[in-house]
Design a protein around this nucleic acid. Structure first.
Lengths: 232, 232
DNA sequence: CGACGCTTTGACTATACTCAACCCGTGTGG
DNA sequence: CCACACGGGTTGAGTATAGTCAAAGCGTCG
């Protein structure tokens, strides 16, 4: 049962769960039943939700905060896989394959997480088979996304990877609004398969070329989205 | 209903379907019911099962042959995602998310494929909910595998990527048996995020160092697996 | 036999990594 | 409240790695 609601973004579990794609097709009363199955826990910055070798038996839904999923390569370099935001979930690799984790889930800032134990999730899926279908849909999307990431890293120059990343954050409805970098540049570098130094230099180059303006460490204004899109 | 069984590896659909992880927990009579739902089709080399933009409504199970799944990057380079072998399946991205394909599925050699239409698969999953669970397990594994691939490409030198690939094919139970390269070197280069020239040179280097011996174009004998594993 | 695609080799080049120094902002403790 | 330490970020110089382009070898298929 949820107890410590120190979270600023969501004031109850329902607000957290109803925006999870897996559950957002359910009606209020169904959602209420799920909420009763859910536990909640707070994590502090630098904690780990799990590490390689850990065996977890729950699905974790981010209520507020940020969690970094990364792997260590054969050469012990960190490869950021994704950053979890409120509404995102993780833990499925361990619960659906009954195997240990291969990646790290590190808490980036104080974070509240909803916990659904595997057996309760099994009951839920039995009761509402649509949930399993939603999982399948969600997993398919995640496979596509990871494949896109592989392609981005495997077949493109750093210029292009970075440009593609920026364009992806760009909202053409609001061209004057600077985009916000949620990762540190260090993590962004790892995500794009490069180094912080290179990121720094490329952003400088983009600025010199008039494609962007670096407002602050975490904010970038896109001046010429065309140029970024046509980058090769 | 299956008709043209020109395939050398499997002489009936059952042999094909029962080795698919999704179905291999079912008993003979259940399997028989599925076989009745299955259609079969032959494809010729250089055909495409689908291309980006196509919308397909079936799950495809490889009965015999090889299919290459690849994407084009922003800079129009081919990134090989995986090579499908007998028993592998594909098409889930389109049927579970109702969206068009982003990748190419190209037939590499004459290939027979079992086709299960989405609505029939839905019926199956309703009847045997264990199938949906098997899908979830399979998808979780595929996510892990793709994340491993991203990490391999994003954070390692080509030496290490290639060594890791070779080690992966190596069977330490039979150290004297040469490993077989199923992809062309061109495709292998794309899979590892590099160029055919570099693959050629690296293999030459490994041979000079005494780590491997290139028996033929498609066969490599591992002489020093330790060295390959410790590569950085 | 000829054509085509894959593979290899060579020479050159560019890209991005490494290492080191320094800057900056934040948070901690005296 | 200031000093300091720490981690992230930037800049510079030098270098290594792997990409490009071109040419030629090889194998297979029609």
């Amino acid at each position: 049962m949820p107890n410590d609601v120190t979270c600023h973004h969501f004031h109850d579990d329902k607000n957290c769960l109803c925006q999870v794609p897996i559950f957002n097709h359910l009606d209020t009363s169904e959602l209420q039943k799920i909420i009763n199955l859910v536990d909640s826990k707070s994590y502090k910055k630098n904690d780990f939700l799990y590490q390689p070798g850990d065996y977890t038996t729950a699905l974790y839904v981010i209520r507020c905060g940020q969690v970094k999923i990364y792997r260590l390569s054969e050469s012990s370099k960190e490869q950021v896989i994704r950053i979890l935001k409120p509404g995102d979930f993780i833990g499925e690799s361990s619960i659906f394959t009954n195997s240990v984790h291969e990646s790290y889930a590190e808490i980036l800032e104080d974070t509240d997480i909803c916990i659904i134990e595997k057996d309760k999730l099994d009951d839920l899926m039995k009761k509402y088979p649509s949930i399993a279908l939603k999982f399948l849909e969600e997993f398919s999307k995640r496979i596509e996304k990871t494949e896109r990431q592989t392609t981005l890293i495997g077949s493109n120059s750093i210029d292009l990877r970075l440009a593609a990343y920026l364009i992806n954050l760009y909202d053409r409805k609001h061209p004057k609004t600077p985009i916000k970098l949620t990762m540190t540049k260090k993590d962004l570098a790892s995500y794009l398969g490069t180094t912080p130094e290179t990121i720094s230099r490329k952003l400088g180059k983009f600025e010199d070329s008039g494609y962007i303006r670096q407002i602050s460490n975490k904010e970038i204004l896109i001046l010429d989205s065309e140029a970024l899109e046509l980058m090769e």
